[in-house]
């Protein structure tokens, strides 16, 4: 058997190995290039007091989570209870970024609303949600047009960023945080950054 006639077979075996391995990969999950970079600054109106603008600078000196959510996001509903527990039981500082509260909702037509009306409606919906389901956030802010989310490379809700005391993004979790995700992915990293110590 001449060796060169085995070349096609060898190439094919390599391809099959690749495909077999590819089942373990998720082609939809895109890693963030922002890991290791400073969290982009923003100053957005707070849900509890819209006249106050808040941003990452307010959380300096401790590791914290930036959670991107919206009341129209179904997966955020399951996640929310977990966030409330994290805030209450583990004392994790979480900031909520309410992503396109009105415009992102497929069932609403935001083009008919004035900017003022949109803001009022968003505040009402966000406050109702936080009152009914509990408020895990140090503060939550409105990102009505989704600009800040773009700066963070958000491409779906919910997404959560782990940011260290120096304001550097250390990790990004895509999708809702559940018990397993917290235990295996986020908690160890959070603890390693000094989170949870007084």
């Amino acid at each position: 058997m001449k060796l060169k006639y085995l070349i096609p077979f060898v190439i094919f075996v390599a391809l099959v190995a690749l495909f077999a391995y590819a089942f373990r990969l998720d082609p939809r999950e895109v890693p963030s290039p922002l890991i290791g970079k400073p969290a982009p600054a923003f100053a957005l109106p707070r849900v509890d007091s819209p006249e106050t603008l808040a941003g990452p600078a307010d959380l300096r000196g401790q590791p914290w989570l930036l959670n991107v959510w919206a009341t129209w996001c179904v997966a955020c509903r399951e996640e929310h209870a977990m966030l409330v527990r994290l805030a209450r039981e583990a004392g994790v500082p979480i900031v909520g970024l309410d992503y396109k509260e009105i415009r992102g909702d497929a069932e609403l037509d935001a083009s008919r609303l004035s900017p003022q009306e949109e803001r009022e409606a968003a505040l009402l919906r966000a406050r109702t949600w936080l009152t009914q389901r509990g408020d895990p956030y140090r503060f939550a802010v409105l990102d009505l047009d989704g600009r800040v989310a773009i700066d963070y490379g958000v491409y779906g809700v919910p997404e959560t960023f782990l940011i260290d005391a120096g304001g550097i993004i250390r990790y990004k979790h895509i999708g809702p945080i559940d018990e397993r995700a917290w235990r295996e992915e986020l908690q160890p990293r959070w603890a390693a950054l000094g989170g949870g110590k007084p």
């Binding site: 058997m1 001449k2 006639y5 096609p8 077979f9 094919f12 075996v13 099959v16």
Partner: peptide
């Protein structure tokens, strides 16, 4: 299925084609 069909064919090829 792909591995079996193509793999066997290419082995057969390596054996008989020379």
């Amino acid at each position: 299925l792909l591995a079996l069909t193509v793999g066997v064919s290419l082995l057969l090829f390596a054996w008989r084609a020379p």
